[in-house]
């Protein structure tokens, strides 16, 4: 057993007599949080409908400019997609469709919104998910190495460069990488593709296709990883610095443990808590994507879908992508809340 005093253990000691009550408490805690999440989701549905109706623009005129040349043609478009109905009627239709799990038809692409979102979900998850995992792992490592040898050469270089990368706009970093590694310069040939998720003419399902997709994702994933890196590195660095002064580390050293063990077994485990929060929150944002990077690298994800939809405005698509994005954040918060409540009973009061 380690000598580390965990916050949970203290709380447990204090409320020790009521351990039965605590178990019931967790059940109702879960119930409340779950209801809260469902409530938020339902509220988002309602807000979604009206939020996008105030966007400027008229889909028939934006999409049909130069094509819907007569009033009869404009009317035909609006009638086809139910836009000629009065707003309350449209809202009822929307609620009815949602109840049936139908997110509507995209005005721009004339396909069911659910199909569009499913098509676009995987590229985004692949891109942002991979980058989140990589930036977490690398960021945490950089942060702890930096904090452990605070002020050392590694710390100075890593903090400096990760802050610089953090301050760069993601799309600009992406363009730099395209210019440097995608196109090549002087004697360096272009090593990576400049855009897209896979080469044309390649079946993404085959082994060949999987490697091809990986090859295409190198630059966008690198861009996002570099951009996200600093966030994790800095949080990790500062929380580890907070732990460094603690008595238990002295104790651990006094036991004669090696430096690496003191760091990895004792300090880092406690310092990871704030980082865990950050990861949980950021995971919720995975589905909302990285709009600018998706644009620079022509990755057909949810971010690109939403930006394209705003200009029309394509109400149904916007409602759908917002629903998915908010559901992602609400879910991540719910999960974080549940884990907290389980880890630390004080949260439940």
């Amino acid at each position: 057993m380690s000598l580390v005093v965990e916050p949970g253990a203290v709380a447990e000691a204090e409320v020790a007599p009521g351990s039965q009550a605590r178990r019931r408490g967790y059940g109702s805690y879960v119930g409340v949080k779950f209801l809260g999440a469902v409530g938020s989701l339902f509220f988002m549905l309602l807000v979604n409908f009206f939020l996008f109706r105030v966007l400027p623009g008229d889909p028939a005129r934006t999409l049909g400019r130069g094509r819907l040349t007569s009033q009869a043609q404009l009317d035909a478009f609006n009638k086809t997609y139910g836009l000629n109905e009065p707003m309350p009627q449209q809202f009822l239709t929307f609620l009815k469709n949602i109840a049936h799990g139908d997110l509507g038809i995209s005005l721009q692409y004339k396909l069911p919104v659910s199909q569009l979102i499913l098509d676009r979900l995987w590229p985004t998850i692949l891109l942002v998910g991979t980058s989140t995992i990589l930036s977490t792992l690398i960021g945490v490592y950089i942060g702890l190495r930096g904090a452990w040898n605070r002020g050392g050469w590694f710390d100075r270089i890593s903090s400096g460069s990760s802050l610089t990368l953090y301050s760069m706009p993601e799309w600009w970093l992406g363009l730099l990488l395209i210019a440097g590694l995608g196109v090549g310069f002087a004697f360096v040939p272009g090593l990576f593709p400049t855009g897209g998720l896979h080469s044309p003419n390649v079946d993404p399902g085959s082994i060949h296709g999987v490697f091809d997709t990986m090859w295409h994702l190198v630059l966008p994933v690198t861009t996002l990883t570099l951009a996200y890196l600093a966030e994790y590195a800095l949080i990790m660095r500062s929380s580890l610095l907070d732990e460094l002064g603690e008595d238990y580390l002295q104790t651990a050293r006094a036991k004669g443990l090696r430096d690496v063990v003191v760091r990895n077994r004792h300090a880092v485990r406690n310092a990871l808590l704030p980082t865990t929060t950050l990861i949980a929150l950021n995971l919720g944002f995975v589905v909302s994507g990285a709009i600018t990077v998706e644009t620079v690298f022509s990755i057909p994800g949810l971010g690109l879908l939403s930006t394209d939809a705003i200009g029309v405005p394509d109400f149904w698509v916007l409602q759908g992508t917002f629903l998915v994005a908010s559901a992602g954040v609400i879910m991540a918060n719910l999960v974080a809340n549940l884990i907290y409540g389980w880890l630390d009973p004080r949260v439940r009061t």
């Binding site: 363009l175 395209i178 995608g182 196109v183 400049t194 855009g195 690298f297 022509s298």
Partner: peptide
């Protein structure tokens, strides 16, 4: 093949 960015298309 559709590109969102004209630099990328020219480089291609």
């Amino acid at each position: 093949q559709f590109y969102k960015n004209d630099d990328s298309a020219v480089q291609a």
